[in-house]
């Protein structure tokens, strides 16, 4: 049940992002809402959930806009996994920790994306855009993360409560 709801939320976020991505950017750089959700899930639940959400998000993006499978799929699942692993022993829920972990996760995603894009010939000099894309998009993701974290946390707590009462 939980998994279905999380997949649905992720699906809605992807659809919203594909439909409205032009309107939600700042100075031409857009926040990656589905990635932020995957990273928040990694924090709220665990690294496996983060990797799974990242994998599904990346896979759909590769299918919808890519020319092969793997560019977003690998980068986003690794980012989700690493953030989940990194947040294991941290006191979760503090805004600053959420923001820092989402920033780190976004940087990891962009870095792996650059490596895959370089080796598959999609980008010839991806390193040139380290600042303009990697840092800028990670900062924007960082600023939207508290809101998405609250959403993910509330869904998780609702399910905990629901299952505690019912079972």
């Amino acid at each position: 049940m939980r998994t279905i709801v999380y997949i649905l939320v992720l699906g809605v976020l992807i659809l919203v992002q594909t439909a409205l991505s032009n309107f939600i950017g700042i100075f031409g750089v857009k926040p990656d809402l589905p990635l932020v959700f995957a990273l928040c899930m990694a924090m709220v639940k665990n690294e496996k959930a983060g990797a799974l959400m990242g994998l599904m998000n990346g896979f759909l993006e590769d299918i919808l806009f890519g020319r092969f499978i793997g560019l977003n799929t690998i980068a986003k699942s690794i980012a989700g996994y690493v953030v989940g692993l990194g947040s294991r022993n941290l006191y979760k829920g503090r805004v600053i920790i959420t923001m820092l972990l989402v920033f780190t996760g976004s940087v990891i995603f962009n870095f792996i994306f650059m490596i895959i894009a370089f080796f598959t010939g999609e980008l010839i000099h991806p390193w040139r855009y380290l600042l303009s894309i990697t840092v800028a998009s990670s900062l924007i993701n960082m600023f939207v993360s508290p809101l998405i974290y609250i959403g993910a946390y509330r869904i998780e707590r609702f399910f905990d409560y629901y299952f505690d009462i019912k079972y």
Partner: peptide
């Protein structure tokens, strides 16, 4: 009907 969600490429559907 859709636009690339990422910041690296510019693809539309």
């Amino acid at each position: 009907i859709a636009r690339d969600t990422g910041n690296w490429f510019n693809v539309i559907l």
